[in-house]
Nucleic acid binder design. Structure first.
Lengths: 127, 127
DNA sequence: GCTTGCCTTGACGTGCACGTGAAGGTTTAG
DNA sequence: CTAAACCTTCACGTGCACGTCAAGGCAAGC
C-alpha cells in the first residue's frame, strides 16, 4: 500500500509518516516511480508508535520497540532495551504522581481553609 | 527598591519582572528618571505568582489572585475568582492523576507480562 | 571625569516535541 | 483531460515563559 493508504489505516497523516521516516523509525520500499510502498508489517510499526505515544512516551522512546519488532520479535516490548524504557517511564510516572498528589493536597487545603459560601448572596453554591 | 533589587529578593530576573509588567501582572511607580520603583507589596505579588506557578498554574491563572491582593485582601485566594481557579486546577490535577494511574497500570502489566530475569546472564536484576 | 554597572525600550530568539505548510513538480485514477 | 495523490526540501507553527540583543541613558565610587 502507498503512504495515503497507510495513513488512513493507521488514522494519521502522510506528513507524520514521512516525519517518522526522517527520524529513522519507518522505512519504505520504493516503487520504480519513487512512491513509498508499505505492507502490514509497517502498519504494525506505526500502531506500536501510536500505542506508546498514548502512554506518554516520546518518539525517541519508541526506538527500542521498533528495533525489537524489526529484529523479528513478536512484540516490541520483549527486548531488554524496551523493558528499560518501560521502567524509566514508570519511574517518571511515579514521580509525577507524587508531585501531583502534593499539589492536590495543597489545593484541597487552600479550598478548605475558607468557607466557599462565605458570601452566598453574591456567589451561590450552585456552580 | 529598583528592579534589580526586587529580582534578587524574589529570586528571579529583571527580565521576568518586566515581562510580568507587560502582562499587566505587576505595576511600578517610576522615579523621575524613569526607573521602576517597587515596595514590599510588589514583592508580595511576585511571591504570589511564584507560589502559584509552583503548583502548575500558568501566568494567566495568577491574574485573579493578583487582582484579589490588589483589591486589599490579605490573601490572594480569598476572592471567588481565585477559588474558581483553584477548583479548575484541582479538576485538572485529578484528571491527570487518573490518566497517570491508567498509564501506570499499563506499564506494570507489561513489565509483569514477561519475566524480567528471562535472560539473566545478559541483564541481571540489580538495576 | 571615567569606568562600571545599573536602568530604559522594542523587536525578535529560545527550547522542546511533533509535526504542518508551502512551493514546485510528477504520476495515477477515472 | 483533470483532479487527486504522490514526490522532494526547507522552513515554519504551536504554547509558554521568558532570554537576547541593540542602542543608549543615568548613577556612584575612585
Amino acid at each position: 500500500m502507498r503512504i495515503g493508504e497507510l495513513a488512513k489505516q493507521a488514522g494519521t497523516t502522510t506528513r507524520a509518516l514521512r516525519f517518522y521516516e526522517s527520524e529513522g523509525l519507518l522505512e519504505a520500499q520504493r516503487t520504480p516511480n519513487g512512491y513509498r510502498e508499505y505492507d502490514e508489517h509497517d502498519l504494525r510499526l506505526v500502531r506500536e508508535i501510536q500505542s506508546l505515544q498514548a502512554v506518554g512516551m516520546s518518539l525517541q522512546d519508541t526506538r527500542p520497540f521498533i528495533a525489537c519488532l524489526r529484529a523479528g520479535h513478536e512484540s516490541g516490548d520483549s527486548c531488554p532495551d524496551s523493558r528499560e524504557v518501560y521502567r524509566r517511564r514508570l519511574a517518571e510516572v511515579d514521580a509525577c504522581l507524587d508531585e501531583l498528589n502534593t499539589v492536590r493536597e495543597f489545593l484541597l487545603a487552600r479550598l478548605a481553609f475558607q468557607d466557599p459560601c462565605a458570601v452566598p448572596e453574591e456567589i451561590p453554591c450552585n456552580s
